[in-house]
Design a protein around this nucleic acid. Structure first.
Lengths: 163, 163
DNA sequence: ATTGACAGTTCAATTTTAGAACTTTAAGTT
DNA sequence: AACTTAAAGTTCTAAAATTGAACTGTCAAT
């Protein structure tokens, strides 16, 4: 399966994985959320090869997660900032960080703590139901096919083949 | 940077990316949350090569996300089920799915809908602050170094090198 | 005149992944 | 008894992605 095919699957997880499902994209986005914006800043802190960083940044721009804006003329230089689509990845990032905080820390404890400006406290992110506000657990959720459940052309062809 | 180095960074995101930050792991876990448990089931629905599936399953077992348990003797056959550590990835999966639902759907709408058994309603996952219960936004969160902020040996060497 | 910063690009060597065939153990079918 | 199927892998070669290192072009500072 190629990356482009992933994007076309009738699955919101697969489509998102097509955007962030590689080793570097999430690390680049981490730096974006930590207010880094420039090529050199990403490269030096991550240790990613310049080649790949250039490619990943292009991809994230193409997909609308980052915007490339000039910050000086002559020589023309650009920096990368999160779009709203990119900012909306915050819950993904926080869910990932939280899982690491719970399951991947050593005896020394968490590398980072998060403070919520609204209430002034150190917090953990909690995922809740938009309707009743209760924390979510996998076992309490049932899945139903939605209106976009199947691809019109490709999937029906595949179905034929399988039958 | 190698995968093993990722795991050792003083960053919960990097450590989690070392576990799920590739094209296939999240898709395999999707199937796990959809109650799939067997090699053939994963392989046929995902289209992943058998070679890579075997490798990824081994890795997820080694990292404690899945458990490999025999479901029949002679011939000995195994299936893969989520551990608690694996089940705890649910918020990560849901955050990813939700972002896809918002930003990657076509005109036909969402491929899947989620029903919360507790309240009986179709819902979206929302990430809130554990302390005040308010929905989280990146701009309202400040980050502080925690007790595990730096690697004891490696990081200080790196710091020397940089200085 | 030289050095350094920044944002990349280029290219060979290595590592990963894809695609396909093959293996093993046993049950079911002809 | 021979043949087919199923499940869970393993093995192999070709293709693709990633690494590592050097190089480019533009400008400012020394």
């Amino acid at each position: 399966m190629k990356w482009d095919e992933l994007e076309e699957q009738p699955c919101s997880l697969a489509r998102t994985v097509a955007v962030i499902g590689d080793r570097w994209s999430l690390l680049i986005l981490r730096e974006c959320f930590l207010r880094k914006r420039r090529f050199e800043a990403f490269q030096s802190v991550l240790g990613i090869t310049r080649h790949l960083l250039a490619e990943r940044l292009k991809k994230l721009v193409r997909l609308g997660v980052l915007r490339r804006i000039p910050y000086q003329e002559s020589p023309k230089r650009y920096e990368y900032i999160l779009t709203q689509k990119g900012l909306d990845l915050y819950p993904v990032i926080m869910a990932i960080v939280h899982w690491g905080d719970v399951h991947m820390v050593d005896s020394r404890g968490r590398p980072m703590l998060h403070e919520h400006q609204n209430c002034g406290k150190l917090f953990d992110p909690v995922m809740v139901c938009s309707e009743c506000g209760e924390p979510l657990a996998a076992k309490q959720v049932h899945v139903h096919p939605g209106p976009g459940a199947r691809q019109p052309a490709v999937a029906s062809l595949k179905a034929e083949k399988v039958r």
